[in-house]
Design a protein around this nucleic acid. Structure first.
Lengths: 246, 246
DNA sequence: CGCTTGATTGATTTGAGTCAATCCCAGTGG
DNA sequence: CCACTGGGATTGACTCAAATCAATCAAGCG
């Protein structure tokens, strides 16, 4: 297979994936693309509820979800977990390991999940040479920071209704961004996980889903969500931050 | 003034500052140090409650607090603010602008404050050449992400007591890290700001300070804090995350 | 077809918020 | 030098959103 054909194949394989933002666009040459792609380890498949890393584990590099879903979380001594983020297909996680070269939180699958990894050392080496790649890495990190900030606003200032509405809107816009329906989708996470992400009780999640349904805003059947009235849903969120897609 | 003398003077001027982590240590040559220092804009002085930037403002680069204190925050339409972080002397802020080259949150002073700025473009150019500097930038960003994660755990899972105790421990450890007393210090922020950071009401902050004082854990007089029993204070925090200094 | 695990629903409790006065200090001006 | 004043801080009384406790209910599975 020629160099060009190889690169093309790789391009296709990364097309719908966030990591592609790191390598494919903005004038990188075919040569450069395949250079980075060489380092990306191809998909690994995992069962639901499998731990990918935990605090103290060596930081290897970034992870990109290809299918399924991953949650990252911290825990209290008493066992309660705070979910920091849900990572859907095409999204990146693992950035928590950068500070000390070891992870600070847990990451585990929520479903049958496959993902790629890109070794940080190799990425950094390429960054020295490719200014555009460097910019993409900054943007990726900046995005993580901004998402975390939005999550802090949600946890610190929003009511339970607002939190759940914000959550649905975020998932919706992220599915939309990846080319899926923004109004009809399957949630990859359990009610318990939603509650832990939003900082509320599972029972509250159930009750609010019911309430939203009674208001005709959504139709919810187990993990299947259909948004019936996007405007009403948006109206539930009173904060001034435009909700940000991950 | 010779090259070496110049660099030495700069080194002293940045010595007690987080930005120094970006340039001074880890085998950068004197030449390289002065190269970066040339770009750092020297201190600017601001009055208390002055806005430094707001959402939409162009991202210029990082800011390093030299004296006083800065808060970064988001707001809801209804006006409530969620404080994302307090930035004490020697700490960095402004990273929220990296994703879109424009800021996403507000930053304003809490006191008479001076700070330096380092233009992002220049920093990036140097990053291309200096691998050690690049690593420092990654660590800085990773640190911000980890702090945000701890804040999410606090906001999502901790009780009001735990939040306030965690807050005091964080401030204490940060003062200690900068060479100040970890048990006796002045808070640069108002009760209102503490409340907004912790996601609780001002009145609750007052009541809990009183309660901590009655338990003999701390002595609080207006903004002056004396920690009398560090073990008891630590005991109030039940989470498994070691509290992380910014 | 029972069993397990997650989701829902209802009854009750409570931690923290809200509302409403003071209090107290820092800064101002007479 | 001291009274005045305004905004932050404190304190108390009351309320309420959401948690907790406690049953079911439903669905996937061996």
């Amino acid at each position: 297979m020629s160099q060009v054909q190889l690169a093309k194949q790789l391009r296709v394989s990364c097309e719908s994936c966030s990591l592609s933002e790191l390598c494919l666009p903005r004038g990188l040459t075919v040569q450069e693309i395949s250079q980075l792609d060489d380092y990306i380890e191809r998909p690994r498949k995992l069962d639901p509820n499998t731990q990918i890393y935990q605090p103290g584990d060596k930081f290897f590099g970034f992870y990109a979800v290809r299918s399924g879903g991953v949650k990252t979380y911290l825990t209290k001594k008493t066992g309660e977990q705070q979910i920091l983020g849900f990572h859907l297909p095409g999204e990146i996680f693992g950035l928590d390991g950068m500070e000390h070269n070891s992870h600070r939180c847990y990451a585990s699958t929520m479903d049958n999940t496959s993902y790629c990894t890109i070794p940080f050392e190799k990425l950094d080496e390429l960054c020295a040479e490719l200014p555009d790649l460097r910019i993409q890495v900054y943007k990726l990190l900046g995005h993580e920071i901004n998402c975390d900030h939005s999550h802090q606003l949600l946890l610190g200032q929003q009511t339970a209704h607002e939190r759940l509405a914000t959550f649905l809107l975020s998932i919706s816009s992220r599915f939309k961004h990846r080319g899926f329906s923004p109004t009809s989708f399957m949630l990859p996470m359990s009610r318990h996980d939603i509650a832990c992400y939003l900082g509320i009780a599972v029972e509250t999640v159930s009750r609010l889903f019911k309430s939203f349904q009674q208001q005709g805003i959504v139709k919810i059947n187990r993990k299947q969500v259909d948004i019936l009235n996007m405007d009403l849903l948006t109206g539930l969120v009173a904060n001034c931050e435009e909700s940000d897609s991950l």
